[in-house]
Design a protein around this nucleic acid. Sequence first.
DNA 1: CCCGATTCCTGTAGGC
DNA 2: TGCCTACAGGAATCGG
Length: 272
Amino acid sequence: MPELPEVETTRRGIAPSLTGQRILQVTVRERRLRWPLPRGFEAQVAGCRVGGVRRRAKYLLVDTDRGTLMIHLGMSGSLRVLDPGVALLAHDHLDLLLESGRCLRFNDPRRFGSVHWIAGDPAAHPLLADLGPEPLGPDFDGDYLWSRARGRSVAIKIFIMNAAIVVGVGNIYASEALFRAGIRPGTPASRVSRARMRQLATAIREVLAEAIAVGGTTLRDYVNAHGTPGYFRQQLFVYERAGEACRRCGCPIQHRVQGQRSTYFCPVCQRP
DNA sequence: CCCGATTCCTGTAGGC
DNA sequence: TGCCTACAGGAATCGG
């Protein structure tokens, strides 16, 4: 499931094939995505020239000379750059035909993903306007996390998965970062010390950077722009390892449901 | 404001 | 073998 590292890997994969290209044709096969694709979308996008591809949180922003195409991969979405003539698969919802002859194809079985056309300033879009800082950017550190956690009783794992606090941290990397920082996922955010918050911020940055370096995590569906999986799965310490031995201390990894999400932790390495 | 619950969707896995 | 159910989850939205 695409979190920040998978989205960033996708961005790096598609950007060289898109930048400078004119979008010749837009084909929509399924409009019922997370937000329905409006009529007229095709006409707005066709004919645009791509300036570059950015990422904000888990959104991909394709900048063009007329506006910005914003794409979210949801939990099962993928974007691939394909040579002409590649056969359609189930859930291939959108194609952008490029002047190179290749095609950017959006596939999303569960349709939690979305595609928006933004005519104006992307930063002002309602889905982007209230987002917290980028975890790999200059505005994110332990002191920031600690100050935002004042008066918050919510569990620290829920807290760091809140995009208004910090973006891009999903279920996998939240569990992994909390393991590295030695913090129990259920600890109230306000009870995490400033020193621990600094460790947590460092752990979040490190786990995301390491995952990006190996192309992200593939559990089931995720593939990058070239159709290949990511390899961070073999570096996971706790996620989906319930009952298995902790790689640091050997104790069995525990599993809980927290905020309707699976959470994993080591009861020894992550003391209450 | 804060926080927990609900909702969207479909492929997969497990039980019988 | 086949049917049914539970589960996976990003994030908006709603209700308390």
